[in-house]
Amino acid sequence: MSSSASARAAMAIHPTLPSLPIKLRTENVGMAFLREGKTLPVLEDINLEVGNGEFVCLLGPSGCGKSTLLSAMAGFLRPTSGAILIDGEIVRGADPRRIFVFQERGVFPWLTVEGNIGFGLRKLPSKERAERVNHYIQMVGLEGFGKSYPHELSGGMKQRVEVARALAVNPDVMFLDEPFGALDSITRLVMRSELLRIWQAERKTILFVTHDIDEAVQLADRVVVMSARPGRIQQVVSIDIPHPRDISSPRYLELRDGILGQIGLAHRL
């Protein structure tokens, strides 16, 4: 029981800024949808600061509004109240500097792997575009599949295509909405370590939505734990384990179990 108590202590809310310069900031963001004449609050009082190059996971149960928050950050939805700022400017719409990665469903099925990865590069001269496309094909390990169509690929490969398509336009921020949710558990583990490898190489700011506690603790610098609807930030947990993370280390288990307790689940099923 003492380990649980020390986990609590280690998991103090972090209202202070990370040491990085602020990239993204939400100020009292609230979202409500109209359903059959009633307003349905989805998000309330979301105040969050994300540092430049930081990897932040938004973690919460289904329906807690974490995907809605991510869509609002990406500029697809407007907050009902409050504001979202990136680089000090209010987000007013989608922008190629911040790319949203859907589950692999976001890959364009009518384009080849090359066509998908080069989709955001139409303004580049074709030689330069081909070089960049090749570079990212290699980075995500899809050599030899450049001319393939998405329906000829596995789910994990499609997800790689989407990540490469996002990386190719060199965005500052990437929003990933349960990107590995539809993959089998082995592929999911492989994709996580690949994402970490890419993140460590490119140092994008990453906001990653997941409902998988292990995934969040394996990947994130900080985990934002959200409560069920209307979604609020319940707690922000810093994961102070250096990469590569030993997922059987006491500290890992301590942090993971702390979040489990926070969500209200006991340590056993």
Binding site: A74, D95, P96, F108, L111, G120
Partner: peptide
């Protein structure tokens, strides 16, 4: 919607979005 959002995320608007995303989809 996901395709339209992806298209607009890469900076496409109006006729471009129609021609390069909506029509092929």
């Amino acid at each position: 919607l996901i395709y339209r959002r992806a298209g607009s995320n890469f900076g496409l608007t109006g006729p471009q979005l129609l021609a390069r995303v909506v029509f092929p989809a």
